[in-house]
Nucleic acid binder design. Structure first.
Length: 172
DNA sequence: CGCAAGATTGGC
DNA sequence: CCAATCTTGCGT
């Protein structure tokens, strides 16, 4: 059995995160679990984290072991553990050196980034996973979504009003 | 080496 | 309102 859909290519991710984050809405997030079965989920909510200037972005603190993948070429997975129990799923965007990523906050039938990570059974091993080549997680093309909504990002007040106020959360 | 805080969630 | 649970970054 092979992919039924059309997997997104590298080019899709090599753009500004503010273009990718809203455009990824509606696309299919596909996961092949350890037992071999495959499930696809429609992406419904995202947030953009944009490089070194964005104080809400982890990469604003510099290139560390944790943020390293964000500085790499787009199309890779950035996962990190928050509050000791939730794996946050992000997709790296932009060319090498541009440390940006899209946080997946919601998929169809599952609202909240912590719940997304749990549902997809993510863990540290997904750090750096290549979405173009991976056989356990990737994204497939879908019809563009009309009427995309925007709002301030959640839980980033620590970055100050300048950044917490940006309407960089996108949802259907 | 110690420690505070975190892109959250669910229960009281 | 607050505990759960543990990695990370930074200060001592």
């Amino acid at each position: 059995m092979q992919d039924m859909g059309n997997r997104l290519s590298l080019d899709f991710f090599l753009r500004d995160v503010l273009e990718v984050a809203p455009e990824i809405l509606g696309k299919k997030l596909v996961r092949q679990f350890d037992d071999g079965h495959i499930e696809a989920y429609r992406i419904t909510e995202t947030e953009a984290y944009r490089g070194g200037d964005d104080l809400a972005c982890h990469a604003s603190k510099g290139r560390t072991p944790r943020t390293d993948v964000m500085f790499q070429e787009g199309g890779k997975v950035y996962v990190y553990l928050i509050y000791g129990m939730y794996w946050m799923l992000n997709f790296v965007t932009g060319p090498e050196g541009n440390a940006s990523a899209v946080l997946i906050r919601g998929i169809e039938g599952c609202s909240g980034p912590g719940k997304v990570g749990r549902k997809l059974q993510l863990d540290k091993s997904f750090y750096g996973e290549n979405l173009i080549r991976s056989s356990r997680i990737w994204i497939e093309e879908a019809e563009p979504v009309p009427n995309i909504q925007t709002a301030p990002r959640i839980g980033v007040d620590y970055a100050g009003p300048q950044w917490a106020g940006k309407l960089w959360r996108f949802y259907i």
